[in-house]
Design a protein around this nucleic acid. Structure first.
Lengths: 246, 246
DNA sequence: GGAAAATGTACATATATGTGAATTTATATG
DNA sequence: CATATAAATTCACATATATGTACATTTTCC
């Protein structure tokens, strides 16, 4: 069950992150199609808690820097080592595609760092974006780091859907693909989840965290050079990862 | 009316900002005294929206960097000019007290930048902290920048409460205090809102934003030197504010 | 300067939502 | 390895909550 008002808080914040300017109650209510009275209650709650204020009289609400202060606190802990950001930056620059660091979240994989391609036609992803762990290159690069028991436990919760012609729709299909990936030396996906999208990924264990790096883009661009891209990822990781570390 | 689940989202995030480590469903539920089922729904909602993930298997949830990305987006717009942070840093260092930048939020004043005193006994405030606009030095320094009509409009919404012996409990009392502040050259408060707390503040208009700076601390330390502190604030603003700017 | 339009606020009520109890899944213990 | 204990999930129902309606205030426009 989705908690509506919790989701609404996030939507409001995303709204401000997009528009980047104060908005009045009426504007917000109209934008979301929410009743004024409900919008009023929500804005009042956020204001009372010190997360919204009125930068100038009558110009509407805007988030206080409290969001930033809180987010900084949260992200200061075990931040990704700086070289991982260099990694995705370099990969995106050299391939011209979108490169990301990905982490597990149950049956999903979450993007925790993203550098977008500059191409007009590109894979559009943002930090926080989620994809099925079994039907994507990045996700399978995570699964490779699990023990058999852990994988089984994940499989039990997966609802296998035919996202595209090549989506693995059974545990055995996924396991087979994982074995192939080990053979191949990298994980790949051709529209397994998103139409026309292809990607190459490899596991990226950092201390005891199980992460993965992925480069993804339109099938017609990635297709011909998956192997090359995968090799580049591996080389770049080798180059950037501190030698001493695990 | 307070929107409970909206408030809960904020509480969860604050919880993570404090503990700074992953927490399981059970831990979160116990911490807040929430039923597990409700906690489950909330965590699922936050996860589904890409704001929570599971950094390592079975170690519980933690916010994704998406919070940070969003907060950065929001705060990039019209950030406070850098010299205002220097201002509060310097003021806190020189006075040994807590120094803050404050902005209006209806009948309240919100702290939008805070440098805390290092003293054991000190004014404890955080970004996002709110105080009544009419019963605090910082708030009155905001009111001084309003036109008479705007002030009247604010007064109509204030619920005058006797927070302490010196709290102004009528419009006339507030207006008188404002006139005195102009005479004096700065705003002050001695326990008008918080017991034992004293502060000195002056208006800090920046472009078309109405802000104020305040230095606050225990009455016994601030009391004897309010005038001195106020003068210091004024001098420091003079020193740091770019000459060309309005 | 006055009327009309837009915006913000309060409250009772029907209904969407949170929750207690039951079920399933995972982990610890003998 | 079986059993016990703890954690995570599901679901039907009573109740806390979102909202329609009415009212107040502010702003716009003529």
């Amino acid at each position: 069950m989705i908690v509506r008002q919790a989701a609404n808080v996030l939507e409001i914040m995303e709204f401000f992150a997009q528009t980047r300017k104060p908005a009045t109650l009426a504007e917000i209510a109209d934008h979301f199609g929410w009743p004024r009275s409900s919008t009023f209650n929500l804005l009042a709650t956020l204001s009372e808690k010190g997360y919204l204020y009125e930068p100038r009289p009558r110009a509407g609400f805007y988030p206080t820097p409290r969001w930033l202060a809180m987010a900084r606190m949260i992200s200061e802990v075990e931040p990704l080592p700086p070289w991982t950001h260099t990694l995705v930056t370099d990969l995106s620059a050299e391939t011209g595609e979108t490169a990301s660091i990905v982490a597990p979240a149950g049956v999903m994989a979450v993007f925790i760092d993203v550098v977008e391609s500059k191409a007009a036609i590109r894979y559009f992803a943002t930090i926080g974006h989620r994809v099925p762990i079994h039907a994507t290159a990045s996700g399978r690069a995570l699964l490779l780091q699990y023990s058999q028991e852990e994988r089984d436990s994940v499989y039990r919760k997966i609802e296998f859907k035919q996202y595209g012609p090549s989506t693995p729709i059974s545990i055995e299909a996924v396991e087979t693909e994982l074995r192939n990936s080990i053979q191949r030396g990298y994980c790949q996906s051709f529209g397994d989840y998103s139409r026309d999208l292809a990607g190459a990924a490899i596991p990226l264990p950092i201390s005891d965290r199980r992460l993965s790096v992925v480069v993804a883009g339109p099938e017609f661009r990635i297709g011909p050079k998956v192997e090359e891209v995968a090799a580049l990822i591996a080389r770049t990781v080798d180059r950037l990862r501190p030698k001493a570390a695990a």
